[in-house]
Write a protein that binds this DNA or RNA. Structure first.
Length: 560
RNA sequence: UACCCCGUGGUGUAAUGGCAACACCUCAGGUUUUGGUCCUGAUGUUCCUGGUUCGAGUCCGGGCGGGGUAGCCA
């Protein structure tokens, strides 16, 4: 190593790899991201993806390094091609590339089968005729040892014969299982003669009906890692107790290398759920619109919502990697998002809850094309022309008849700036029969074109607007967190914690005409409201609110 | 009450025997044609208890607390 990396500040996994490289244990770094295609990828997977692919990219400057994408497809009853396709698309969208290294555990079934015969030959595996119930009953408990199966001491020949016939389909589903012959009294339950292969007459998305027996994760995973020459096999904490079994597998068959399993804490995010089981439930029971519902923590949902891969990667970097259970505040994710969007999103004006406003001293039919800055954070984004007329829409929220303290938006007699336009003073409030404000009337200062008065007087409030004659009609979907509680399901069914206000669809919003060209790939900021993106599924002009702007006034208002 | 893992501000992460730091959040102020952005500042931290050491968040013992594990799921 020409430039030794200081240990300080590096997470424990990077330190392990540093040490392995320094000690000459490895001359390269090979990691893998091993999803099971039984659901869509979520933000928790993003953490694992960024870790594994990130490691390969980082160490690649030092030694040969790569990261594989491998589908852990050993349970045909839960896995589907739709998920396989979605996972590949999501990993790519996040910004990672596995190159040639796309693998499937199902490609290794024959090798795994051969390794199993090796185990049988060594007396390290046997065919058990017990039912699943009997095996469960004899496994023992957390505090008591299990008892040996009556079939535990079969001869090698008999085991070989039976195992071959299992494969040939001579036995019914679930009637027999191949078990590792380890230790029924082990304090680690995973070592109490774990099942290695089970009989399942289920078509597999990739192998079709070629196999009637399927290997278990605990057997498949370590050997797949070994077959791919994985150096560091990084997984989540719940597999910690499985590590002795992982090591047992690679130690007892003739694989070409012995990868090391390292466990880290999975991501928990406040105000959401992360288990695939729960996410699947939300989809199947119709609590959300699908896996890519913009309220879902799935990568496809976040994408549709307007999250950027850059923001998600930044987030994954900032949360770090450790072994302690934790719950990350969703506000950190939103902070990363806003930071990215602030840099890149062009500004537009849009009125979600329109209130008509008429300018008395504006010549009928006159259109004034004003210059508006597209992105104050990025001069190269340039400017655009926005039409100003005597009939506008403003945000209903920006007007109050009886302003509270520190209110510097619109109220009767108060002067505000119409962004990029003129200083405006409200002279008249028109109400309907019910007393609801229907329309505002007022005057502009004709000398203030562009937003500044010639006399230099300060106007603190600036509000956004849209010319009525030029406005586009659109639907805007306002989202909040899917769950109302920080930790959904903490003390009741998680469905009861769903936020009833997680989606608000608002129709007949008024947009600046330039928004007609908005695409689902380009985030925009609706000035003073938040970041939005064109929906990728709905026909017509439909926008999703990605995230609001920080709103210090809202906090002020709450305080009174 | 078996085995494994983990305990650092409200949250997440760092400090690798030597001044407990960074980010988010919160709060206060400044700048501002977005109550955005940006800038400045403030509040707040080593689970308890013995020990080793000149010196312990860090090493050791004992507690306490949290998480995981009894699929032919992954």
């Amino acid at each position: 190593m020409d430039t030794p990396i200081p240990a300080a500040g590096r997470d424990f996994i990077r330190q392990i790899i540093d040490a392995d490289l320094a000690a000459g244990k490895h001359v390269n770094v090979v990691t893998r991201f091993p999803p099971e295609p039984n659901g869509y990828l979520h933000i928790g997977h993003a953490k694992a993806i960024c870790l594994n692919f990130g490691l390969a990219a980082e160490f690649g400057s030092q030694v040969p390094a790569r990261c594989h994408l491998r589908f852990d497809d050993t349970n045909p009853e839960k896995e589907e091609q739709e998920y396989i396709d979605a996972i590949e698309a999501d990993v790519r969208w996040l910004g990672f590339d596995w190159g040639e290294h796309l693998y499937h555990a199902s490609d290794y079934f024959q090798k795994l089968y051969d390794y199993s015969e090796e185990l049988i030959q060594q007396g390290l595996a046997y065919v058990d005729d017990q039912s699943a119930e009997e095996i469960r009953a004899t496994r023992g408990t957390l505090t008591e040892p299990g008892t040996d199966s009556p079939w535990r001491n079969r001869s090698v020949e008999e085991n070989l014969d039976l195992f071959r016939r299992m494969r040939a389909g001579e036995f019914a589903d679930g009637s027999r299982v191949l078990r590792g012959r380890i230790d029924m009294a082990s304090p680690n339950l995973n070592m109490r003669d774990p099942a290695l292969w089970r009989i399942r007459r289920a078509p597999h998305p990739r192998t079709g009906d070629a196999w009637l027996i399927y290997p278990m994760y605990d057997f498949t995973h370590p050997l797949s890692d070994a077959l791919e020459y994985i150096t560091h096999s990084i997984c989540t904490l719940e597999f910690e107790n499985h590590r002795p079994l992982y090591d047992w597998a690679v130690d007892n068959v003739s694989v070409p290398c012995k990868p090391r399993q390292i466990e880290f804490a999975r991501l928990n995010l406040s105000y959401t759920v992360m288990s695939k089981r729960k996410l699947l439930f939300l989809v199947k029971e119709g609590h959300v619109d699908g896996w890519d519902d913009p309220r879902m923590p799935t990568l496809s949902g976040l994408r549709r919502r307007g999250y950027t891969p850059e923001a998600i990667r930044d987030f994954c970097e900032r949360i770090g990697v450790a072994k302690r259970d934790s719950m990350v505040d969703v506000q950190l994710l939103e902070h990363c998002l806003r930071e990215d969007l602030n840099r890149r999103a062009q500004r537009r004006m849009a009125v979600v809850d329109p209130l008509p406003l008429s300018i008395e001293n504006w010549e009928e039919g006159r259109v004034d094309w004003l210059e508006a800055v597209n992105n104050p954070e990025d001069a190269s984004a340039g400017t655009r022309q926005v039409p100003f007329t005597g009939e506008l829409f403003i945000e209903r929220e920006d007007f109050v008849e009886d302003p509270p303290k520190k209110w510097f938006r619109l109220s009767p007699g108060a002067e505000v700036r119409l962004r990029w336009g003129y200083l405006f003073t409200c002279t008249q409030v028109v109400k309907d029969a019910q007393g609801r404000v229907e329309r505002l009337v007022g005057r502009i200062d004709p000398e203030s074109r562009g937003g500044n008065a010639p006399d230099g007087r300060k106007v603190k409030g600036t509000i956004h607007w849209v010319s009525a004659a030029h406005a586009l009609d659109a639907e805007v979907r306002l989202y909040e967190h899917l769950f109302a509680l920080e930790k959904p399901g903490a003390d009741r069914d998680f469905l009861e914690d769903i936020n009833p206000h997680s989606l608000k669809c608002v129709t007949h919003c008024k947009l600046e005409a330039a928004l007609a060209e908005a695409t689902p790939e380009l985030p925009v900021q609706f000035e003073r409201l938040g970041y939005f993106v064109r929906d990728s599924r709905a026909p017509g002009l439909v926008f999703n609110r990605t995230v609001t702007l920080r709103d210090t006034w809202a906090k002020e208002a709450v305080k009174g």
